[in-house]
Design a protein around this nucleic acid. Structure first.
Lengths: 249, 249
DNA sequence: CGCTCAGTTGAAGCATTTCAATTCTTGTGG
DNA sequence: CCACAAGAATTGAAATGCTTCAACTGAGCG
């Protein structure tokens, strides 16, 4: 996985997201609008807390590059990762009012974020409905992810649970063009995975090993390969066909 | 709990939601817009499936009255309830594109829904940004609920988990004025609760009994009373102060 | 080259599930 | 108004999946 390929601020015309065919192309008007709203970029190294639960965030972010994750923690340290954040994701909107975050976001890799002032979000709705619609669509899409994960954590057993999450991440990353020779960068530890699926680290590890020995997946040195997605998805009792697609408008 | 207090279609001016002080009041323009979009009402008895996962829904709904719940099921019948649906909630938006639902919605009581054609949602964004903003805010609010529940299912132990969910529902229902003499209608079975928190029915039952004996809650004949919310919330390690509020706009 | 963090493994303990049976509620028809 | 059936709640006991503890191995880094 490359470190940021651009050394300083990116003009929206050259936004790396625009090159991904997962995202719809924008009209000149939309583009101009985004440019006007964009206040800058935030670059952080791995292991940085970008947003902290309980604090107020004056900015919303679009992820241009890198991996991060959203999570909540109980007072005694138990952590639940609610979702992973990949390029194209929008973060900061999922807060209660007044910009108080209901969860934290930490980076996993070096990350480039595009920043927008929260106070001006309203302008999007007022002047650029198509972008506002995208925003809502993004939120709805994220909700689909949360729903499926909730099903997983609540009702799947360890083996299904791990299998599901591997498939989920593998597909998501592949969809935005992060696969290289069928392998996808997994820039996180087994502990992160454990915290995402609500299992203990040890049991997650043992389950991973079992899946590996069955030849259903390989995850070494930060790269993951799933030779037969269909097979792993079936083990997870997960319907691969319900893939997310782009908005109607 | 009363059956629908209105026998036939409700004009938006008299919408029961408008009487709740949780919801912001609408301008004449907004009201007119909603009236134009509203295509009718859907009334269903308890135990009805309003939306089914995998099917296409041409309508979006606002809940005027009654309880329902969103859920997903695995092929072998294991069910995860992702959230309960109360008056003021919006359902149907949380679908993948093309209106294919990613989850189902069943009613718990008699329910009155206000219906909007999905195909015309775009008009809201185009012509009534403030309502579009509300829609997004609603989605973000729901995400907060999902996040907290995910934390619960994944990382809280049985006792905390049950305590959290009771508090959550009690507060949510109270907030929209459903509390009567400090008691709230809980029109669902212990099995529903079990499926919401990802525990077995038996263990949920035993945990409920324990909490009851501790005097932290009473739930009988479909009504729930929590004499000391703070105490129950503390047991759940849940911060009651992070209450949701209404949108900025 | 040694320190630290991530991954791995076995074994013991325990929370939760599953099984099975009984009681309590609620609604329905005689 | 009572008897009965069906659904919901309750309880004990056995089974098990997952967690915790503990120890070791391996990889990456200064």
């Amino acid at each position: 996985m490359s470190i940021s390929p651009f050394a300083y601020e990116v003009p929206c015309e050259a936004c790396p997201l625009r090159r991904m065919d997962t995202f719809r192309s924008l009209s000149d008007e939309e583009l101009g609008f985004i440019k006007k709203l964009k206040t800058g970029e935030l670059r952080s190294g791995p292991g940085t807390t970008v947003l902290r639960e309980g604090t107020q965030s004056d900015h919303l972010f679009t992820v241009l590059e890198g991996w991060a994750f959203r999570y909540k923690i109980l007072e005694d340290g138990r952590r639940q990762i609610t979702s992973f954040v990949l390029p194209g994701d929008f973060i900061g909107l999922q807060s209660s009012t007044e910009g108080i975050m209901d969860h934290s976001v930490d980076t996993l890799t070096s990350v480039a974020l595009c920043t927008f002032p929260r106070g001006r979000i309203w302008e999007i709705f007022k002047h650029c409905p198509s972008l506002a619609f995208d925003l809502t669509w993004l939120a709805a899409t994220h909700e689909v992810i949360l729903n499926e994960n909730l099903l997983s954590v609540g009702r799947r057993r360890a083996e299904e649970c791990v299998a599901y999450y591997i498939v989920h991440l593998y597909v998501r990353a592949s969809d935005i063009g992060l696969a290289v020779d069928g392998r996808v960068r997994f820039p996180f530890t087994q502990e992160h995975l454990a915290d995402a699926i609500g299992l203990s680290l040890v049991h997650t590890n043992k389950t991973l090993r079992r899946l590996s020995k069955l030849g259903l997946m390989e995850w070494e040195h930060g790269w993951c390969n799933v030779p037969n997605l269909q097979a792993l998805a079936e083990l997870a009792k997960y319907d691969l066909t319900q893939k997310r697609m782009r908005p109607l408008v």
